[in-house]
């Protein structure tokens, strides 16, 4: 897979179809990967693909979009099925044009949770599971267990998994994607509040959740405004709660559940649960899921004449 990826990217660069390709390369620890930016054909050997390619690279499209022009060169981006959803989101919201990106879709069997890595930090254990994909299931990220887009829905080039050649498309396992949300929904309001209070109290206001999010592209975030200061900038339960709620609401119907915020959060606040809850509400109320159709209008940016609510008419 890696060889084919490198060849394809090399070709794109050689033919000047792209100015830049955003992909993954090995990190210094020899296990993780890290985002990389390939501009020259002789750099393509840096590109890798494995189950540590967790990052959603579409986050970098906004920063690099000025390099693209139509019809070419464009920006190439290595994307998993879930990452493609946020590319669709960015197109939908006029942040990039479809013909300015070359989506290099990757067939993906799932990415590993950093759990192992975290254990390594907590217990001082060494990570040696590089090749041991025996109990792979156990190491998969939560989101990957319920994945329905092992093969991206939209792409310009598809890099298929050699191990699956000829085999039918991997089916998503029978996992209820909303199980964690439903568990919380079953609790009383007081219990839920206690739960979130404890989680939000840990927030250090590092804004990694916002910075890593492909759809948090506001030139000025409400959290950074000082006149007026809507959200207290210091970490306190009040300010943290406001911040976390504002973040989630602004992503309602837009969040494509790549889970990057939760992964990036150093304090391990279960941000995905909040996003999923809002996603679930949107699905039930508007029969809409984010990141599936670049022509569709996000429900919170649209209205219908037959809307039952008075205020919107």
């Amino acid at each position: 897979m890696i060889k084919r990826l490198q060849e394809k990217v090399g070709k794109l660069l050689r033919e000047k179809k792209v100015a830049l390709v955003i992909g993954y390369e090995m990190a210094g620890d020899g296990i993780s990967t890290t985002p990389c930016f390939i501009e020259r054909e002789d750099e393509v050997e840096r590109l890798v693909w494995n189950e540590h390619c967790v990052y959603n690279l579409s986050r970098y499209l906004i920063e690099t979009r000025e390099l693209a022009s139509s019809p070419s060169p464009k920006i190439g981006v290595v994307a998993k099925g879930c990452d493609v959803k946020s590319i669709i989101g960015l197109i939908q919201e006029n942040q990039i044009k479809r013909d300015e990106v070359v989506i290099i879709g990757m067939e993906c069997e799932g990415q590993f949770d950093v759990e192992g890595e975290r254990q390594f930090k907590v217990e001082g254990l060494k990570l040696k599971d590089k090749d041991k994909d025996k109990d792979k299931e156990g190491k998969l990220l939560e989101k990957c267990k319920a994945c329905e887009v092992h093969i991206p829905k939209v792409y310009d080039l598809l890099i298929k998994d050699d191990r699956n050649s000829g085999a039918p498309e991997p089916q998503s396992p029978e996992v209820n994607a909303y199980a964690q949300v439903e568990e919380l929904e079953g609790k009383s309001q007081e219990e839920r509040w206690q739960y979130w209070k404890k989680e939000f109290a840990r927030c250090i206001k590092c804004y990694a959740c916002r910075q890593v999010c492909p759809l948090c592209f506001c030139p000025q975030c409400i959290a950074d405004q000082t006149l007026p200061q809507w959200i207290s900038p210091s970490p306190s339960l009040k300010g943290n709660t406001t911040w976390n709620i504002v973040r989630a609401f602004h992503l309602a119907g837009r969040c494509i559940d790549c889970g990057e915020c939760e992964r990036a959060c150093p304090m391990k606040i279960p941000l995905r649960k909040i996003n999923k809850k809002l996603g679930k509400e949107i699905k039930e109320m508007f029969d809409y899921e984010a990141g599936l159709d670049s022509e569709a209008k996000p429900p919170l940016a649209d209205f219908k004449l037959e809307d039952p609510e008075e205020f919107i008419r």
């Binding site: 890290t34 985002p35 990389c36 930016f37 986050r59 970098y60 250090i204 206001k205 590092c206 804004y207 990694a208 916002r210 910075q211 890593v212 000082t226 200061q229 207290s232 900038p233 210091s234 990036a264 150093p266």
Partner: peptide
């Protein structure tokens, strides 16, 4: 280029001491 400009490295760094003031 790959840095996402978050506050993780500075906030968790034992030697980073920058601060701001605000009225609440």
């Amino acid at each position: 280029r790959k840095c996402i400009s978050c506050g993780v490295c500075t906030y968790l760094c034992p030697t980073c001491f920058c601060f701001d003031l605000s009225y609440e």
